[in-house]
Amino acid sequence: MSISELVKIPKPKILSSRNDPLHIIRTRKTTHNRPATIAGPMVRYSKLPFRQVCRDYDVDIVYTPMILAREFVRNNNARLADFSINEQDSPLIVQVGVNNVADLLKFVEMVAPYCDGVGINCGCPIKEQVREGIGCALIYNPECYVRWSQLSNKIMGTALRLETKIRIHEDYDQTVDLCRRLSDAGVDWISIHGRTRTTRSSQPVNLEAIKYIVEKIKDKNIPVIANGDCFKKCDLREIAEVTKVDGVMAVRGLLANPALFAGYETCPWGCVEKFWYYTLEFGGLPYQLLQHHLYCMLENMKLEKNLLKEMMDVKNTAALIDWFETNFIFKRFGEIGFGEGSTIPYRRK
């Protein structure tokens, strides 16, 4: 069966210098004197309200959560739960977890009109995903992986960008070989998480490995993004200086402090107010995710522990709004000073 028989991509968005992620990655060092800043994919947590908060604080490119292709292409409920956007949600990369080419091509067909690029997840180390041939399993199946990339690139052309996110092998030269083959297959840029499949997140990211890989594929002229252990803006500078990459991706760091790329050492109160606003404005965020996002931000701000515990005992959105109103000076959109505060504005009795 030919590619054209497998998939027919509807008219995609038109990429401009403003929303073309590849253009942004290639030019940020010249235009902003820094590498591109990227909010990486987090399973469940990279949904629209959080993405919008990140964009308000110097994030250039944002990813969706990893979306499982097999569910997305078959189940309308899965599509509604996993993927929502608006006109401001750009540039946007939709990340896909996939273990067969038919699902991949169908997935690309379905999301093409609503994003600026597709990223193939080859970095997820979760055992259940690896057993099914998803995530990290793919870096040990390069023939299949490279072929999928070739097919995806052929149907996407220049109308949609193709990215892939990988982890490193124990033997760095295996990763170098994979990156060179992916470049030849037409991948637009490669994101490298500086840990192996079995390296725990508590162990430091291996910047020297990323540096080695970048140096070895320099002749391919393909941008590389570094991922791992970016928790403060100073980490952005260090990662860029050591590895010489074109962009830096943060994940856990942004979950705790969406303003880290804007230079805030801890999460500013404005992030909390904006996150509340976008969540209520856009809708569709399960209560448990709302609560956990707020917990991560407020813990980063060193909210009093008794209040953190109280917040986690609140059972629904309406009650949580009341709890915020009781404990803090909680500004709404349109009020003077909304989204501008830095420290926690306790409402003391």
Rank of each mutant, 00 (worst) to 15 (best):
M1C: 09
V7I: 15
P12M: 09
L15I: 10
L15Q: 06
S17M: 14
I24A: 11
R28V: 12
T30V: 15
R44V: 13
L48T: 10
D60C: 15
I61T: 12
V62T: 15
V62N: 02
V62L: 13
Y63A: 10
T64C: 09
M66G: 07
V73A: 03
A81Q: 11
F83W: 08
D89R: 07
P91S: 09
L105W: 07
K106A: 11
V111Y: 04
C115M: 02
G117K: 01
V118Q: 06
I120T: 04
G133A: 14
G135C: 11
P142E: 13
E143Y: 04
S149K: 00
S149Q: 11
K154H: 09
L160H: 05
I166R: 06
R167H: 05
I168G: 01
E170I: 06
Y172H: 10
L178C: 03
C179A: 14
S183L: 11
S183R: 10
G186D: 03
V187Y: 00
S191N: 13
R195H: 02
V205Y: 00
L207M: 11
I210V: 15
Y212T: 13
I213Q: 04
V214C: 12
I217F: 03
K232V: 07
E238I: 13
A240M: 03
D246R: 04
L260I: 10
F261N: 09
A262E: 08
C267W: 00
V272T: 12
K274D: 05
Y278N: 07
G283V: 11
L285K: 04
L285N: 03
L298Y: 06
M301E: 10
A319D: 15
T326D: 12
G339V: 11
P345V: 08
